[in-house]
Amino acid sequence: MASKTQIGKKPIGRDRVIFDVISVVVLTVLSACCLLPFLLVLSGSFSDQTSILTHGYQLIPETFSLDAYKTLFKIPEDLLRAYGVTIFVTVTGTFLGLFFTSMAAYVLASSTFRYRYQVSFFFYFTSIFGGGLVPWYIFNTKYLHFHNSLIALIMPILINVTYLLILKSYMAGIPEALYESARLDGAGDFTIYLRVAMPLCKAGLATVGLFIALNYWNDWYDAMLFLDEGRSDLYPLQYYLNNILTKSQAIAAAAARSGLPMSEVPSEPMKLAMTVVATGPIILLYPFLQKYFVKGVTIGAVKG
């Protein structure tokens, strides 16, 4: 706590002023660059197909149309259910993933663990070599029976080795002395992990947790592989949206190839509306995590 008040009291120097000006300018410009495309997406999602095809994307839509959203919300129960599935999968997956990842990261970061390099290698190796889609799919369906189960949406991206190693590097930054004192108090490894390492690594956990959550939120591939057409009750949001979007494109392609009768032409605004619908809730998660990103407060707090 001490550090926070100290900084607050300090008189504002010239370097600080220059720095603040630079920060504000740079960050404003960058944010504008990031915001502009999103505004185009937003406005595009409210235009109609013809005006996008003829005029391109515009900040203020030429014509106002809710068609894209109407298509997406055609069956509101389905969309809501898809939100439900995604939220469930994201929460469960993030919790388990973060728990398993941080435990492993704690062990690998601990300098008293003799086999840390070997075990790190054991994990890291999988991020370089993989068996490919087909063997993986066969194993998951034939032996693990992932077909039409929610586990199929959680398990494949539960452990991301990259995040594990990043978290390990954060944890390695925690001074060993803090662990030692806990150990002297008679705490076991699990207790130290839970009571000392976790609180000290809040920013790292928040970051990795956010990344894991984003992966779950955006994942549609596993749903595509493992869920049957009949099990739309298990469809996660991104898959549900993706289905609506690519269906019409694929039909058009097949129609061109083989002269099959063509149904309604896909709509450009759909792509954009989909982005909006899918981004909505998860973007709200971020500000929540922001309280963990306060400089120098964590370690200082424990020590103080």
């Binding site: 799919y137 066969i138 993706n242 269906k247 019409s248």
Partner: peptide, 16 residues
């Protein structure tokens, strides 16, 4: 579905 047959088609042969 049209959106996934290209990927899924070969896989159902392999899946058992």
């Amino acid at each position: 579905s049209w959106s996934e047959y290209e990927q899924k088609y070969p896989l159902i042969f392999a899946s058992g």
